[in-house]
Design a protein around this nucleic acid. Structure first.
Lengths: 327, 327
DNA sequence: TTGTACGCGTTATCAC
DNA sequence: GTGATAACGCGTACAA
C-alpha cells in the first residue's frame, strides 16, 4: 500500500494525499475522503521513502558501552522519553565495552543514517575524535567532558572531593582508594584527582601505595581491598570510585574481617540500587543519570533545530548519601 | 556524496559501483579504481535508499516495557549481540509500562519499517493480538507464551512449583504468597498456579487469605508482608513472585521484626543482582534472561530467512539458588 | 564485463 | 485547491 493507491482509491492525486498528510491545503471534502480510505486500509507512509526525499530520518543513534548497566539504562530511559515525545526513535548502538565498535557505530551513523547522535562515552581516543570530526549531524556526549563537543556529565572531581572531605571530617586518617583506569577521564582520572586534592587541601599526605586500580567489576573491589588490608592494617576509610567496586570490597570484609567492618568507613559513587540494598547500606554520591539522559536529549533536539553549532556543556551536581557504611 | 558521484570520480557508471558494492562482476581494474575513491571520500551508501529499493531495512524493532530493568536489559544484551553479528540494528520501542504504547509501536513497526520484531511482553490484551495479526514481518514474543506466535519464555509454573516444594520439604507449614496481577500470565498467573499446585500435591490446603497481590515494586512487598504478619503470626515461609518484591518484604522484616527473620524462609524468582547482594542473601530461581534474548534473536533470524511461517516455542528452565534467606 | 534507464514511495515545485 | 512531474539514492533488467 502506498500513497498512489490511496490517492486512486480516494479519487484524488497523490500530491493531494501528501498535502493532507503534511497539513497542506486540502478541501474539507477531500480531507474526509482521504481519511476514510486511510482508516480502511490502515495505511502508514513509508518512513524510508520519506527519509530519501526529505533527508530527515527521525532517528537518533545512541551509542553506549553496555546496556545492562544501571547508569546506562537510566540514561537511555531519560533520553528516550524526551526523544519519543519529540517524534524521534532510538537506533541502538551497543558496543559491549569494545572501543573499536564505538568507532564502527560512529561510522555507521555518519552518513545521514540518523539525525543526531547521543554518545555515552567511556574512553575517548584520538581515533574517536577523528571520526567524530567528520560527522555532520549533531553529537552530544554523555558522561565525559570533551573539548569541542556539547556534553553533559557529572561533576566527578567535585563529587570525589566532597566525599573525601567527608571521610576526613569523620576522622579518617588513612584512606585507601580503589579506582579504575585513568584513560576513563570521568570515572578514572577526575575521581582520583578529587580524592587526592581533598587530601592535599586537608594537609594530608597522599600515600601512593594505598591507591589501587582495578576494573569496573565487583571482583576488582574484592581483590583490591584484600591487598589494601595486607598493606596497612590501620586503614580506616576506603574510597571506591564506583558502587560496584565498593560492593566487592564490602563483600571481602564481610567474609574475611567482619570484626573490622564497623571501624572502617566505605563509600562509592553512583548511588545504585545495590548501594541501598546491601548490608551495611553503602554511603554513596547520588548521580542524576536519568536527568543526564534527558538533558542530553534536549540539547540534541536544540542542536538539530538550530543552524549554528553552538557548544554547550552541562555539568550536573551530586548528592551525598551517608549510610550505614559511613557511621 | 552518492553512488553517482563515486561513479563519476572513478570513471565508471553507477551500475558498476553498485555491482562492486554488492559483489557483482567488476573487472579488477575497476575494482581498484572504485575502492580508491571510496577510501578517499569515506562514502557509505544510504541505508534508506537501499531500503526503498530492496524492501530490506536491516532493522529489528524491539518492544519492551522498561529499559531500566535488569531482566529486560539482559534480554536486549543477548538479542543485540546475535542481531548485530547478523548485520541488523535495533530500533528501540520503550513503552514505559504503558500498554497503549505497545500497540503504538506495533503499528509503527507494521508497515515495513523493520524486518522483524522482538516483543518483550507483559500483559497481552485482545487489542495486542488484533494488531499483531496484521503485521507481516515475523514477531518473536519474549517472556510470555502466546498462542499462534513463536515465543521464548521461562517455565514459570515449573519454577514456582519446584520452589514451593522446597519450602515444603524444608518443613514450612504456613506459606504466604506475594505476587502480581494475573493479567500478566507469566509472572502473575503461572507462578501463582505453580505455587498452589505444589501445595495441593503435597496435601496442603491453599489458604486464600495468605495470598497477596501487589505490583512489581519493592513497596508492594513491604506492604504485603506487613499484612501477612498481622494476619497470621505463625507464617514460616514467604514466596515472592519476584526478587524485588522479596527485597521489600525482607526490608520490612529487618525493620519491624528482625527477631523473626531467621525463623521464616524467603524466596523470590529471577535471581537478580540484588538477590545476591542483600542480607540475608535471597534464595531465588535463576532465570536465563540473556539466553532468552539470544534465543529470540536466533529464532527471528530464522523466521526472516524462511518462507514458511513455522511457529516455534522455546521454554527455558531455571536453577534453584538456595541462600541465607532459606536456611 | 559494462552502461542505460527505470522504479521503489515520498515530497516539492509549478502551472493550472 | 489541485494535479503532473521531477527528484531523492540505490539496485537491477536489459541491451550492448
Amino acid at each position: 500500500m502506498n500513497i498512489s493507491k490511496i490517492a486512486t482509491l480516494a479519487g484524488v492525486s497523490n500530491a493531494t494525499v501528501s498535502r493532507f498528510l503534511n497539513n497542506g491545503y486540502v478541501s474539507q471534502e477531500n480531507r474526509e475522503k482521504i481519511q476514510k480510505i486511510i482508516d480502511e486500509t490502515g495505511y502508514i507512509p513509508s518512513a524510508h521513502a520519506q527519509t530519501l526525499r526529505t533527508k530527515k530520518t527521525n532517528l537518533i543513534g545512541v551509542i553506549l558501552p553496555k546496556i545492562s548497566s544501571e547508569a546506562v539504562s537510566r540514561i537511555i530511559e531519560g533520553a528516550g522519553k524526551e526523544l519519543t515525545e519529540a517524534g524521534y526513535h532510538i537506533l541502538l548502538g551497543n558496543t559491549d565495552l569494545n572501543i573499536q565498535k564505538e568507532i564502527e557505530y560512529l561510522n555507521i551513523f555518519k552518513n545521514n543514517q540518523v539525525d543526531g547522535i547521543i554518545f555515552v562515552a567511556t574512553i575517548l581516543t584520538p581515533a574517536h575524535l577523528e571520526v567524530m570530526e567528520k560527522i555532520k549531524v549533531p553529537i552530544i556526549v554523555v558522561g565525559q567532558q570533551v573539548e569541542g563537543y556539547s556534553c553533559v556529565y557529572h561533576d566527578d572531581f567535585g563529587a570525589a572531593y566532597t566525599l573525601t572531605k567527608e571521610f576526613i571530617q569523620k576522622g579518617c586518617k588513612r584512606i585507601g582508594y580503589i579506582g579504575v583506569t585513568e584513560k576513563d577521564i570521568a570515572v578514572g582520572y577526575e575521581r582520583k584527582r578529587g580524592f587526592m586534592q581533598a587530601l592535599q587541601d586537608s594537609g594530608m599526605e597522599v600515600q601512593q601505595e594505598l591507591i589501587k586500580i582495578g576494573d569496573f567489576s565487583e571482583e576488582s573491589g574484592y581483590q583490591a581491598i584484600n591487598e589494601l588490608m595486607q598493606l596497612d592494617k590501620r586503614i580506616d576509610g576506603v574510597f571506591c570510585a564506583t558502587d560496584k567496586i565498593a560492593v566487592g570490597a564490602l563483600e571481602w570484609m564481610k567474609e574475611k574481617q567482619p570484626e573490622q567492618i564497623e571501624r572502617i568507613k566505605f563509600a562509592g559513587i553512583g548511588d545504585s540500587v545495590l548501594a541501598k540494598a546491601i548490608s551495611p547500606k553503602l554511603a554513596s554520591m547520588h548521580y542524576y543519570y536519568k536527568t543526564s539522559g534527558k538533558e542530553a536529549a534536549k540539547m540534541l533536539l536544540d542542536a538539530m533545530q538550530s543552524e549554528t553549532k553552538m557548544i554547550k556543556e552541562v555539568k550536573l551536581g551530586y548528592e551525598l548519601k551517608l549510610r550505614e557504611s559511613f557511621k
